[in-house]
Computed example of a mutant assay.
Amino acid sequence: MANRKTQLVEQLMPLIETEIRILQKSLDSASEAATHPESKPENKYDTRGLEASYLAGAQRERLNELKNALFSLQNMVVRDFTADDRIAPTALVELEQDGRQSSYFLLPLGAGFMLQWEGKPVQVLTPQSPLGQALLHKNVGDAVKIRAGSAIKEYEILQVL
């Protein structure tokens, strides 16, 4: 099973690589804008260059995070889970909520990306998210509740792979 779940990680890596390329182009543009002669302040209230510099700094930080995430994915050990195992990172979890089933791949990074597993969509979830936190250390058959705005959502854990 772990080899099959590794395919999910292999789907995620090019998505992160694409994000890295897009962010690198954006960073290059922001860096150029920050140092461009037209960004020189015309008066003490003109902050165009400073704003571009802040943007470039934030993008550089995000780019480093993505590069580290990619490195972590490339070196991550994907483990198999049984119905008796508690949920932990690299678990593929099937949930039911209000009669609808959904699948989540719990990873330390890559939240929000959608992948495909046996023809079904699988959303990447991190332990830092409300649902990820609720799922950690739970078992098949457990129910978890999370607050989504003013509503409470309840999920039943159907399967853990």
Rank of each mutant, 00 (worst) to 15 (best):
Q7T: 10
I87L: 09
K120R: 15
E65G: 01
Q74W: 03
E19S: 13
V124E: 02
G149R: 02
L50C: 11
R21W: 06
A88E: 12
S39K: 01
S129N: 07
P14C: 06
A2F: 02
Y155V: 01
L115H: 04
F105C: 04
N3P: 11
N68I: 01
G119K: 03
A30L: 04
E38D: 15
S72C: 07
E118S: 14
P121K: 14
A111T: 02
E51P: 07
L161D: 12
E118H: 15
A56P: 02
L106S: 03
Q7I: 08
P108D: 11
E154R: 03
F81G: 03
L107Q: 04
K145A: 10
R21G: 10
T126N: 08
E32K: 11
R79I: 15
K67H: 07
P127R: 06
S72T: 12
D80F: 07
G57P: 06
G119Y: 12
L70M: 01
E96I: 05
G141C: 06
P121C: 13
Q123N: 13
E42K: 14
E154C: 01
L50S: 12
L27T: 04
G132D: 05
Q101L: 05
G99R: 01
N64W: 04
S26T: 14
R79D: 07
Q24R: 07
S102T: 08
E51S: 15
P37K: 02
M1H: 12
E96H: 09
A134S: 07
S29N: 11
Q24A: 12
P130D: 13
N64A: 14
L92N: 05
L70H: 10
E154N: 00
W117C: 05
G99S: 08
K5Y: 09
I157L: 08
P37H: 05
Y54G: 13
P121D: 15
E65P: 08
A58D: 14
Q128D: 12
A151L: 14
